[in-house]
Design a protein around this nucleic acid. Sequence first.
DNA 1: TGATGTGAATTTTTTCACAGCA
DNA 2: TGCTGTGAAAAAATTCACATCA
Lengths: 211, 211
Amino acid sequence: MKQPPQVSISRLALYLRFLEDYLLEHGPNSTIKSTQLARFLNINPHQIRKDLSYFGKFGERGIGYRVEELKNKISQILGLDRNWRLCLCGMGNLGSALFAYRGFKQMRLSILAVFDSDHKKIGKVMKGVRIYSVESIPEVVRKLKIDIAVITAPSAAAQSIADKLARSGIKAILNFAPVKLNVPQRLKLRNVDLSTEFNYLTYFLSAQVQQ
Amino acid sequence: MKQPPQVSISRLALYLRFLEDYLLEHGPNSTIKSTQLARFLNINPHQIRKDLSYFGKFGERGIGYRVEELKNKISQILGLDRNWRLCLCGMGNLGSALFAYRGFKQMRLSILAVFDSDHKKIGKVMKGVRIYSVESIPEVVRKLKIDIAVITAPSAAAQSIADKLARSGIKAILNFAPVKLNVPQRLKLRNVDLSTEFNYLTYFLSAQVQQ
DNA sequence: TGATGTGAATTTTTTCACAGCA
DNA sequence: TGCTGTGAAAAAATTCACATCA
Protein backbone atom coordinates (compact mmCIF):
# COMPACT_ATOMS: atom_id res chain seq x y z
CA MET A 1 0.00 0.00 0.00
CA LYS A 2 1.44 3.32 -1.07
CA GLN A 3 1.91 6.37 1.15
CA PRO A 4 -1.24 8.50 0.99
CA PRO A 5 -0.91 11.97 -0.57
CA GLN A 6 -0.91 14.81 1.93
CA VAL A 7 -4.17 16.17 0.58
CA SER A 8 -5.86 12.84 1.24
CA ILE A 9 -5.36 13.43 4.95
CA SER A 10 -7.03 16.82 4.70
CA ARG A 11 -9.93 15.31 2.82
CA LEU A 12 -10.38 12.59 5.42
CA ALA A 13 -11.00 15.35 7.95
CA LEU A 14 -13.64 16.72 5.62
CA TYR A 15 -15.31 13.34 5.24
CA LEU A 16 -15.27 12.84 8.99
CA ARG A 17 -17.05 16.07 9.72
CA PHE A 18 -19.69 15.36 7.13
CA LEU A 19 -20.25 11.83 8.42
CA GLU A 20 -20.72 13.12 11.96
CA ASP A 21 -23.54 15.39 10.81
CA TYR A 22 -24.99 12.70 8.56
CA LEU A 23 -25.03 10.22 11.41
CA LEU A 24 -26.96 12.57 13.66
CA GLU A 25 -29.52 13.12 10.95
CA HIS A 26 -29.89 9.59 9.59
CA GLY A 27 -29.37 7.43 12.63
CA PRO A 28 -26.77 4.84 13.67
CA ASN A 29 -27.58 2.26 11.01
CA SER A 30 -27.42 4.57 8.03
CA THR A 31 -25.19 3.81 5.07
CA ILE A 32 -23.79 6.07 2.38
CA LYS A 33 -22.34 5.47 -1.08
CA SER A 34 -19.21 7.12 -2.37
CA THR A 35 -21.29 8.76 -5.09
CA GLN A 36 -23.67 10.29 -2.53
CA LEU A 37 -20.86 11.51 -0.31
CA ALA A 38 -19.13 12.91 -3.38
CA ARG A 39 -22.23 14.82 -4.42
CA PHE A 40 -22.59 16.36 -0.97
CA LEU A 41 -18.96 17.38 -0.78
CA ASN A 42 -18.80 18.39 -4.40
CA ILE A 43 -15.83 16.19 -5.25
CA ASN A 44 -15.09 13.10 -7.31
CA PRO A 45 -16.34 9.71 -5.98
CA HIS A 46 -13.20 7.99 -7.30
CA GLN A 47 -11.17 10.28 -5.14
CA ILE A 48 -13.07 9.36 -2.01
CA ARG A 49 -12.64 5.65 -2.66
CA LYS A 50 -8.99 6.13 -3.47
CA ASP A 51 -8.38 8.21 -0.35
CA LEU A 52 -9.96 5.52 1.82
CA SER A 53 -8.14 2.71 0.02
CA TYR A 54 -4.81 4.01 1.30
CA PHE A 55 -5.91 3.01 4.78
CA GLY A 56 -7.93 -0.14 4.26
CA LYS A 57 -11.29 -1.48 3.11
CA PHE A 58 -14.16 0.16 4.89
CA GLY A 59 -17.09 -0.37 2.54
CA GLU A 60 -19.29 -3.20 1.36
CA ARG A 61 -19.71 -3.89 -2.33
CA GLY A 62 -23.22 -3.29 -3.52
CA ILE A 63 -24.11 -1.38 -0.35
CA GLY A 64 -21.66 1.40 0.39
CA TYR A 65 -20.25 2.43 3.75
CA ARG A 66 -21.84 2.04 7.18
CA VAL A 67 -21.70 5.64 8.34
CA GLU A 68 -20.96 5.01 11.99
CA GLU A 69 -18.24 2.50 11.24
CA LEU A 70 -16.58 4.71 8.64
CA LYS A 71 -16.72 7.69 10.96
CA ASN A 72 -14.99 5.72 13.69
CA LYS A 73 -12.35 4.40 11.34
CA ILE A 74 -11.49 7.84 9.98
CA SER A 75 -11.47 9.20 13.50
CA GLN A 76 -8.92 6.57 14.39
CA ILE A 77 -6.79 7.20 11.29
CA LEU A 78 -6.62 10.89 12.11
CA GLY A 79 -5.60 10.15 15.68
CA LEU A 80 -8.81 11.55 17.10
CA ASP A 81 -9.49 8.51 19.25
CA ARG A 82 -7.31 9.95 21.98
CA ASN A 83 -6.88 13.29 23.71
CA TRP A 84 -4.31 15.83 22.57
CA ARG A 85 -2.79 18.50 24.76
CA LEU A 86 -2.44 21.96 23.21
CA CYS A 87 -0.95 25.29 24.13
CA LEU A 88 -1.61 28.65 22.56
CA CYS A 89 1.33 31.03 22.08
CA GLY A 90 0.03 34.58 21.73
CA MET A 91 -3.25 35.77 23.21
CA GLY A 92 -4.10 38.52 20.74
CA ASN A 93 -7.21 38.53 18.60
CA LEU A 94 -6.51 35.32 16.75
CA GLY A 95 -5.42 33.56 19.94
CA SER A 96 -8.64 34.60 21.64
CA ALA A 97 -10.66 33.41 18.67
CA LEU A 98 -9.06 29.99 18.82
CA PHE A 99 -9.36 29.87 22.60
CA ALA A 100 -13.12 30.34 22.25
CA TYR A 101 -13.48 27.84 19.40
CA ARG A 102 -15.95 25.12 20.36
CA GLY A 103 -14.82 22.60 17.75
CA PHE A 104 -11.74 21.54 19.74
CA LYS A 105 -13.73 19.53 22.22
CA GLN A 106 -15.24 17.35 19.49
CA MET A 107 -11.74 16.64 18.19
CA ARG A 108 -10.54 15.90 21.71
CA LEU A 109 -8.06 18.76 21.64
CA SER A 110 -7.65 20.55 24.97
CA ILE A 111 -5.91 23.87 25.46
CA LEU A 112 -4.01 23.47 28.71
CA ALA A 113 -1.81 26.56 28.69
CA VAL A 114 -1.60 29.96 27.07
CA PHE A 115 1.60 31.98 26.68
CA ASP A 116 1.93 35.70 26.17
CA SER A 117 4.56 38.38 26.67
CA ASP A 118 2.17 41.05 27.95
CA HIS A 119 2.64 41.40 31.70
CA LYS A 120 -0.91 42.61 32.09
CA LYS A 121 -2.17 39.26 30.82
CA ILE A 122 0.32 36.93 32.50
CA GLY A 123 -1.06 35.22 35.57
CA LYS A 124 -4.69 35.51 34.53
CA VAL A 125 -6.80 32.37 34.41
CA MET A 126 -9.48 31.95 31.73
CA LYS A 127 -11.89 29.03 31.88
CA GLY A 128 -9.39 27.25 34.10
CA VAL A 129 -6.44 27.90 31.76
CA ARG A 130 -3.55 30.02 33.02
CA ILE A 131 -1.65 32.56 30.95
CA TYR A 132 2.11 32.11 31.40
CA SER A 133 5.01 34.25 30.25
CA VAL A 134 6.67 33.11 27.03
CA GLU A 135 9.89 32.65 28.97
CA SER A 136 8.32 29.77 30.84
CA ILE A 137 7.46 27.84 27.66
CA PRO A 138 10.14 25.13 28.03
CA GLU A 139 9.26 24.48 31.65
CA VAL A 140 5.46 24.58 31.37
CA VAL A 141 5.22 22.65 28.10
CA ARG A 142 7.30 19.90 29.59
CA LYS A 143 5.43 19.83 32.88
CA LEU A 144 1.97 19.80 31.29
CA LYS A 145 3.07 17.30 28.62
CA ILE A 146 1.82 19.49 25.77
CA ASP A 147 1.73 17.73 22.37
CA ILE A 148 0.89 20.54 19.96
CA ALA A 149 1.65 24.25 20.10
CA VAL A 150 -0.28 26.87 18.20
CA ILE A 151 1.63 30.05 17.37
CA THR A 152 -0.73 33.01 17.19
CA ALA A 153 1.89 35.58 18.13
CA PRO A 154 3.04 38.41 15.84
CA SER A 155 5.58 37.54 13.14
CA ALA A 156 8.42 39.26 14.97
CA ALA A 157 8.06 36.99 18.00
CA ALA A 158 7.30 33.76 16.17
CA GLN A 159 10.83 32.42 15.61
CA SER A 160 11.89 33.02 19.19
CA ILE A 161 8.78 31.21 20.41
CA ALA A 162 9.45 28.36 18.00
CA ASP A 163 12.97 28.06 19.43
CA LYS A 164 11.64 27.81 22.96
CA LEU A 165 9.08 25.24 21.85
CA ALA A 166 11.78 23.19 20.15
CA ARG A 167 13.77 23.17 23.40
CA SER A 168 10.69 22.04 25.28
CA GLY A 169 10.46 18.84 23.24
CA ILE A 170 7.10 19.61 21.66
CA LYS A 171 6.02 17.33 18.80
CA ALA A 172 4.08 19.61 16.45
CA ILE A 173 3.48 23.29 15.74
CA LEU A 174 0.64 24.96 13.91
CA ASN A 175 1.94 28.37 12.90
CA PHE A 176 -0.36 31.27 12.03
CA ALA A 177 2.40 33.88 11.84
CA PRO A 178 3.19 34.67 8.20
CA VAL A 179 6.87 33.75 8.42
CA LYS A 180 8.85 30.66 7.56
CA LEU A 181 10.01 29.15 10.85
CA ASN A 182 13.21 27.19 11.26
CA VAL A 183 12.61 24.18 13.46
CA PRO A 184 14.35 20.83 13.98
CA GLN A 185 13.39 18.13 11.48
CA ARG A 186 11.80 15.88 14.09
CA LEU A 187 9.21 18.56 14.76
CA LYS A 188 6.11 18.53 12.57
CA LEU A 189 5.37 22.07 11.41
CA ARG A 190 2.28 23.22 9.58
CA ASN A 191 1.65 26.76 8.42
CA VAL A 192 -1.64 28.56 7.98
CA ASP A 193 -1.22 31.81 6.11
CA LEU A 194 -4.36 33.88 5.95
CA SER A 195 -2.98 36.68 3.80
CA THR A 196 -2.00 34.14 1.16
CA GLU A 197 -5.65 33.12 0.93
CA PHE A 198 -6.70 36.68 0.26
CA ASN A 199 -3.99 37.17 -2.33
CA TYR A 200 -5.20 34.07 -4.10
CA LEU A 201 -8.63 35.64 -4.50
CA THR A 202 -7.34 39.03 -5.60
CA TYR A 203 -5.21 37.24 -8.19
CA PHE A 204 -8.22 35.54 -9.70
CA LEU A 205 -10.37 38.63 -9.55
CA SER A 206 -7.84 40.82 -11.28
CA ALA A 207 -6.59 38.26 -13.77
CA GLN A 208 -10.12 37.07 -14.58
CA VAL A 209 -8.67 33.59 -14.95
CA GLN A 210 -11.10 30.86 -15.87
CA GLN A 211 -12.48 28.43 -13.27
CA MET B 1 3.02 29.95 -21.73
CA LYS B 2 1.10 27.40 -19.72
CA GLN B 3 -1.46 28.17 -17.00
CA PRO B 4 0.34 28.43 -13.65
CA PRO B 5 -0.44 25.77 -11.03
CA GLN B 6 -2.68 26.97 -8.23
CA VAL B 7 0.08 26.52 -5.66
CA SER B 8 2.33 28.86 -7.64
CA ILE B 9 -0.06 31.68 -6.84
CA SER B 10 0.15 30.93 -3.14
CA ARG B 11 3.93 30.87 -3.33
CA LEU B 12 4.03 34.22 -5.12
CA ALA B 13 2.31 35.69 -2.06
CA LEU B 14 5.04 34.16 0.06
CA TYR B 15 7.79 35.60 -2.15
CA LEU B 16 6.16 38.99 -2.07
CA ARG B 17 6.07 39.18 1.70
CA PHE B 18 9.67 38.14 1.97
CA LEU B 19 10.78 40.66 -0.66
CA GLU B 20 9.01 43.47 1.18
CA ASP B 21 11.00 42.72 4.33
CA TYR B 22 14.20 42.22 2.38
CA LEU B 23 13.77 45.54 0.63
CA LEU B 24 13.39 47.40 3.91
CA GLU B 25 16.54 45.80 5.23
CA HIS B 26 18.76 45.95 2.15
CA GLY B 27 17.64 49.13 0.44
CA PRO B 28 16.02 49.98 -2.90
CA ASN B 29 18.90 48.83 -5.12
CA SER B 30 19.34 45.40 -3.60
CA THR B 31 19.25 42.29 -5.76
CA ILE B 32 18.58 38.67 -4.83
CA LYS B 33 19.29 35.35 -6.52
CA SER B 34 16.80 32.52 -6.75
CA THR B 35 19.17 30.37 -4.71
CA GLN B 36 19.30 32.93 -1.90
CA LEU B 37 15.56 33.43 -1.86
CA ALA B 38 15.14 29.66 -1.91
CA ARG B 39 17.41 29.23 1.09
CA PHE B 40 15.50 31.85 3.08
CA LEU B 41 12.13 30.34 2.27
CA ASN B 42 13.37 26.80 2.58
CA ILE B 43 12.20 25.72 -0.86
CA ASN B 44 13.71 24.73 -4.20
CA PRO B 45 15.30 27.47 -6.36
CA HIS B 46 14.03 25.76 -9.52
CA GLN B 47 10.55 26.12 -8.21
CA ILE B 48 10.93 29.84 -7.67
CA ARG B 49 12.24 30.37 -11.19
CA LYS B 50 9.52 28.16 -12.63
CA ASP B 51 6.79 29.96 -10.68
CA LEU B 52 8.00 33.31 -11.96
CA SER B 53 8.42 32.05 -15.52
CA TYR B 54 4.67 31.50 -15.80
CA PHE B 55 4.26 35.26 -15.64
CA GLY B 56 7.26 36.60 -17.52
CA LYS B 57 10.99 37.27 -17.23
CA PHE B 58 11.85 39.33 -14.20
CA GLY B 59 15.49 38.53 -13.61
CA GLU B 60 18.84 39.25 -15.18
CA ARG B 61 21.22 36.44 -16.08
CA GLY B 62 24.37 36.53 -14.04
CA ILE B 63 22.85 38.94 -11.53
CA GLY B 64 19.54 37.75 -10.17
CA TYR B 65 16.43 39.81 -9.49
CA ARG B 66 16.20 43.49 -8.59
CA VAL B 67 14.25 43.23 -5.36
CA GLU B 68 12.11 46.33 -5.75
CA GLU B 69 11.21 45.54 -9.33
CA LEU B 70 10.32 41.92 -8.57
CA LYS B 71 8.25 42.97 -5.58
CA ASN B 72 6.27 45.38 -7.73
CA LYS B 73 5.75 42.82 -10.48
CA ILE B 74 4.47 40.17 -8.08
CA SER B 75 2.28 42.76 -6.41
CA GLN B 76 0.78 43.50 -9.80
CA ILE B 77 0.32 39.83 -10.69
CA LEU B 78 -1.55 39.22 -7.45
CA GLY B 79 -3.79 42.20 -8.09
CA LEU B 80 -2.42 44.12 -5.13
CA ASP B 81 -1.79 47.27 -7.16
CA ARG B 82 -5.38 48.37 -6.57
CA ASN B 83 -7.76 48.58 -3.62
CA TRP B 84 -10.19 45.78 -2.80
CA ARG B 85 -13.41 46.22 -0.90
CA LEU B 86 -14.22 43.60 1.73
CA CYS B 87 -17.06 42.72 4.03
CA LEU B 88 -17.01 40.47 7.06
CA CYS B 89 -19.99 38.18 7.64
CA GLY B 90 -20.09 37.16 11.30
CA MET B 91 -18.61 39.22 14.11
CA GLY B 92 -17.77 36.48 16.57
CA ASN B 93 -14.25 35.74 17.77
CA LEU B 94 -12.76 34.97 14.39
CA GLY B 95 -14.52 37.92 12.78
CA SER B 96 -13.14 40.23 15.45
CA ALA B 97 -9.67 38.79 14.98
CA LEU B 98 -9.77 39.48 11.25
CA PHE B 99 -11.27 42.91 11.82
CA ALA B 100 -8.27 43.81 13.96
CA TYR B 101 -5.74 42.31 11.56
CA ARG B 102 -3.21 44.94 10.50
CA GLY B 103 -1.97 43.10 7.42
CA PHE B 104 -4.98 44.09 5.32
CA LYS B 105 -3.83 47.65 4.86
CA GLN B 106 -0.53 46.57 3.31
CA MET B 107 -2.46 44.42 0.85
CA ARG B 108 -4.82 47.29 0.11
CA LEU B 109 -7.81 45.35 1.41
CA SER B 110 -10.38 47.50 3.23
CA ILE B 111 -13.20 46.18 5.35
CA LEU B 112 -16.15 48.44 4.54
CA ALA B 113 -19.01 46.56 6.17
CA VAL B 114 -19.65 43.94 8.81
CA PHE B 115 -22.75 41.74 8.98
CA ASP B 116 -24.14 39.92 11.98
CA SER B 117 -27.45 38.48 13.12
CA ASP B 118 -27.11 39.58 16.74
CA HIS B 119 -29.41 42.55 17.33
CA LYS B 120 -27.20 43.78 20.14
CA LYS B 121 -24.36 44.27 17.66
CA ILE B 122 -26.32 45.59 14.68
CA GLY B 123 -26.06 49.35 14.28
CA LYS B 124 -22.77 49.67 16.11
CA VAL B 125 -19.88 51.39 14.38
CA MET B 126 -16.31 50.17 14.93
CA LYS B 127 -13.38 52.17 13.56
CA GLY B 128 -15.79 53.76 11.13
CA VAL B 129 -17.27 50.46 9.97
CA ARG B 130 -20.96 49.79 10.59
CA ILE B 131 -22.41 46.44 11.61
CA TYR B 132 -25.46 45.61 9.49
CA SER B 133 -28.02 42.83 9.79
CA VAL B 134 -27.39 39.80 7.58
CA GLU B 135 -30.73 40.47 5.90
CA SER B 136 -29.31 43.65 4.42
CA ILE B 137 -26.40 41.84 2.71
CA PRO B 138 -27.73 42.11 -0.87
CA GLU B 139 -28.52 45.80 -0.52
CA VAL B 140 -25.39 46.90 1.35
CA VAL B 141 -22.92 44.80 -0.65
CA ARG B 142 -24.30 46.27 -3.85
CA LYS B 143 -24.36 49.82 -2.54
CA LEU B 144 -20.82 49.71 -1.14
CA LYS B 145 -19.51 47.84 -4.20
CA ILE B 146 -17.94 45.09 -2.10
CA ASP B 147 -15.61 42.78 -4.06
CA ILE B 148 -14.81 40.04 -1.56
CA ALA B 149 -16.84 38.62 1.34
CA VAL B 150 -15.33 36.80 4.27
CA ILE B 151 -17.62 34.31 6.00
CA THR B 152 -16.74 34.02 9.67
CA ALA B 153 -20.23 33.01 10.78
CA PRO B 154 -21.09 29.65 12.39
CA SER B 155 -21.51 26.69 10.03
CA ALA B 156 -25.28 26.63 10.42
CA ALA B 157 -25.60 30.17 9.04
CA ALA B 158 -22.94 29.94 6.35
CA GLN B 159 -24.99 28.62 3.42
CA SER B 160 -27.78 31.14 3.92
CA ILE B 161 -25.21 33.94 4.01
CA ALA B 162 -23.57 32.57 0.88
CA ASP B 163 -26.95 32.63 -0.87
CA LYS B 164 -27.47 36.27 0.06
CA LEU B 165 -23.97 37.10 -1.12
CA ALA B 166 -24.56 35.33 -4.42
CA ARG B 167 -27.70 37.43 -4.93
CA SER B 168 -25.73 40.56 -4.18
CA GLY B 169 -23.41 39.97 -7.12
CA ILE B 170 -20.25 39.57 -5.08
CA LYS B 171 -17.18 38.25 -6.93
CA ALA B 172 -15.36 36.14 -4.36
CA ILE B 173 -15.87 34.52 -0.99
CA LEU B 174 -13.34 33.39 1.58
CA ASN B 175 -15.14 30.90 3.78
CA PHE B 176 -13.94 30.00 7.27
CA ALA B 177 -17.01 27.96 8.20
CA PRO B 178 -16.19 24.24 8.04
CA VAL B 179 -18.90 23.40 5.50
CA LYS B 180 -18.94 22.98 1.74
CA LEU B 181 -20.88 25.90 0.33
CA ASN B 182 -22.93 25.75 -2.84
CA VAL B 183 -22.39 28.89 -4.86
CA PRO B 184 -22.82 29.84 -8.53
CA GLN B 185 -19.87 28.92 -10.77
CA ARG B 186 -19.04 32.53 -11.61
CA LEU B 187 -18.27 33.16 -7.95
CA LYS B 188 -14.71 32.39 -6.80
CA LEU B 189 -14.87 30.47 -3.54
CA ARG B 190 -11.95 29.62 -1.30
CA ASN B 191 -12.19 27.64 1.91
CA VAL B 192 -10.00 27.87 4.99
CA ASP B 193 -10.63 25.02 7.35
CA LEU B 194 -8.80 25.35 10.64
CA SER B 195 -9.89 22.04 12.12
CA THR B 196 -8.50 20.24 9.10
CA GLU B 197 -5.10 21.69 9.93
CA PHE B 198 -5.24 20.30 13.43
CA ASN B 199 -6.36 16.90 12.21
CA TYR B 200 -3.42 16.85 9.85
CA LEU B 201 -1.04 17.23 12.78
CA THR B 202 -2.78 14.65 14.95
CA TYR B 203 -2.62 12.23 12.02
CA PHE B 204 1.14 12.58 11.79
CA LEU B 205 1.67 12.46 15.50
CA SER B 206 -0.32 9.29 15.96
CA ALA B 207 0.77 7.56 12.76
CA GLN B 208 4.43 8.50 13.28
CA VAL B 209 4.72 8.86 9.54
CA GLN B 210 8.10 9.88 8.21
CA GLN B 211 8.84 13.47 7.13
C1' DT C 1 31.46 33.59 -15.88
C1' DG C 2 27.27 33.06 -13.45
C1' DA C 3 22.96 33.70 -13.19
C1' DT C 4 18.10 33.08 -15.33
C1' DG C 5 14.46 30.77 -18.10
C1' DT C 6 12.60 26.64 -19.87
C1' DG C 7 11.88 22.03 -22.31
C1' DA C 8 12.21 17.48 -20.68
C1' DA C 9 12.23 13.95 -17.04
C1' DT C 10 10.41 12.62 -12.90
C1' DT C 11 7.29 12.40 -9.28
C1' DT C 12 2.88 13.08 -7.34
C1' DT C 13 -1.98 13.30 -7.58
C1' DT C 14 -6.24 12.64 -9.85
C1' DT C 15 -9.22 10.27 -12.79
C1' DC C 16 -10.68 6.27 -15.14
C1' DA C 17 -12.19 1.60 -16.05
C1' DC C 18 -13.22 -2.52 -14.62
C1' DA C 19 -12.34 -6.80 -11.81
C1' DG C 20 -14.25 -8.75 -7.85
C1' DC C 21 -17.33 -9.62 -4.37
C1' DA C 22 -21.85 -9.42 -1.31
C1' DT D 1 -26.99 -6.43 -9.84
C1' DG D 2 -24.53 -2.63 -7.84
C1' DC D 3 -21.42 -1.21 -5.30
C1' DT D 4 -16.32 -0.98 -3.63
C1' DG D 5 -11.30 -1.32 -4.26
C1' DT D 6 -7.48 -0.82 -7.19
C1' DG D 7 -4.13 -1.14 -11.16
C1' DA D 8 -3.43 1.64 -15.02
C1' DA D 9 -3.85 5.98 -17.61
C1' DA D 10 -3.93 10.81 -17.56
C1' DA D 11 -3.05 15.17 -15.68
C1' DA D 12 -0.64 18.25 -12.70
C1' DA D 13 3.25 19.75 -10.22
C1' DT D 14 8.02 19.47 -9.15
C1' DT D 15 12.71 18.82 -10.17
C1' DC D 16 16.43 18.60 -13.30
C1' DA D 17 19.77 19.89 -16.78
C1' DC D 18 21.35 22.89 -19.72
C1' DA D 19 20.97 26.43 -23.44
C1' DT D 20 21.18 31.22 -23.26
C1' DC D 21 22.55 35.64 -22.66
C1' DA D 22 24.34 40.05 -19.94
